[in-house]
Design a binder for these strands. Structure first.
Lengths: 214, 214
DNA sequence: ATCTTCTTGTGAAGCCTTTCACAAGCCAGT
DNA sequence: ACTGGCTTGTGAAAGGCTTCACAAGAAGAT
């Protein structure tokens, strides 16, 4: 593989560019400039070009980038050419909400199994996804080739869940439990924390050092 | 107000330290060192001290920080001494899941109203929160002194919602719609984007430049 | 063919964040 | 009161990310 160290922020921006390119494709646009991408994603033209230049040169001077080509390139860079198999652990309110979330399937993340401790939920179908008992996790995850897991358990259960998932061979974890998780070297985690974001918002509002951007 | 520019990352870390301090309080710990805070939150002791030093000096050399005092200090810094009044716009799956989410209320974010376009939902109670039609947004938000809003609408409706909220005097927005939002100067936004996080995970897994941390 | 206009790709500069390293200071034991 | 062992607070150094600025190159008009 190529990759020197790519920064967190670069990856996030690439993902945003990709979303924009998809909109542009839908609008039948053929070419787009770094300036336009920048304007629409809240960054600068130079930043867009720098981000892309890390991976090669995909534009044409004097013209811009081919929407179609850049879209494919970004999908390739982000590893979105394949369909990722995802398991959900914790079929509570948030977990269930995620199962019904179109965006996931549309973007190539296929939830193939859910797990929960609640006997009432086990065996049921949530949005077409079967709920298994935790004791089946290792087997089901291994057999179905699950690579990514979403943890939506209560915080106390999250770290134990990580252990189970690691043993079953999961390599990526998206964590909704409001705790930091410790994982082995080969596993990547990202935590989405609503309370933390609200607290950051609270800080911004309290200190009035605002100046908004999403 | 004091504050020079405080970085995004510093605020996030402060929020994590605070969560840890609450755990420590529950465990009856009285004193904690920067080293311990660092270990438990995945950063370095120097970083913890630098983060805190921006706001003053709260520790005692040779001893550490008073858990209780630091907890209160961080709550003050983050603006969490008050109860924030929150409105939810979009009572779909994710919105509803958030209403049932303990963490919010526990941390001082009080959801006082929900809004939706769906006539079947309007008038109903979701986890004790009344659902209003969008046409009542301006009035209800103003009257109830709502300062923060959570947008959980479909992406197409998100930007329009921002306009309504701004007019009604909301100053902070937590956005769950997968689109970048444009807001006026006085408003702060943060976007939580599941698909984007999964794509970042996909990138990490594809390029194998891992090395996990939550 | 040449000129004008536009836009990329990229070294270099600037800015911001993190890490280092150590003096200052607290506590407990003697 | 002094000593030894820790731990903070903080300038200075290092490292990383973003912005600048401009040469190189493409397209279209003349």
């Amino acid at each position: 593989m190529t990759t020197r160290r790519i920064s967190e922020s670069t990856v996030r921006r690439l993902s945003r560019y990709l979303r924009l390119l998809r909109d542009l494709t839908a609008q039948r646009a053929e070419v787009v400039s770094s300036q336009e991408l920048a304007d629409r994603s809240g960054t600068t033209a130079a930043q867009v070009r720098k981000d892309l230049s890390v991976f090669g040169s995909f534009g044409q001077r004097g013209r811009g980038y081919s929407v179609q080509e850049l879209e494919r390139t970004l999908e390739h860079i982000l590893g979105l050419e394949k369909q990722w198999r995802v398991a959900l652990v914790g079929a509570g309110k948030i977990g269930t909400a995620l199962l019904g979330y179109r965006e996931l399937a549309d973007r190539g993340f296929d939830v193939v199994a859910a797990f929960d401790t609640d006997v009432d939920k086990i065996g049921s179908d949530l949005f077409g996804v079967r709920v298994f008992p935790m004791s089946d996790l290792n087997e089901v995850v291994s057999n179905r080739g699950v690579e990514v897991a979403i943890i939506a358990t209560p915080p106390e259960a999250a770290q134990d869940t990580v252990r189970l998932l690691e043993q079953a061979g999961v390599r990526g974890i998206l964590n909704f439990a409001p705790v930091g998780l410790t994982v082995s070297e080969e596993v990547s985690v990202r935590t989405m924390d609503v309370a933390l974001e609200l607290e950051a918002l609270s800080f911004a509002l309290s200190s009035r050092t605002n100046g908004g951007r999403a």
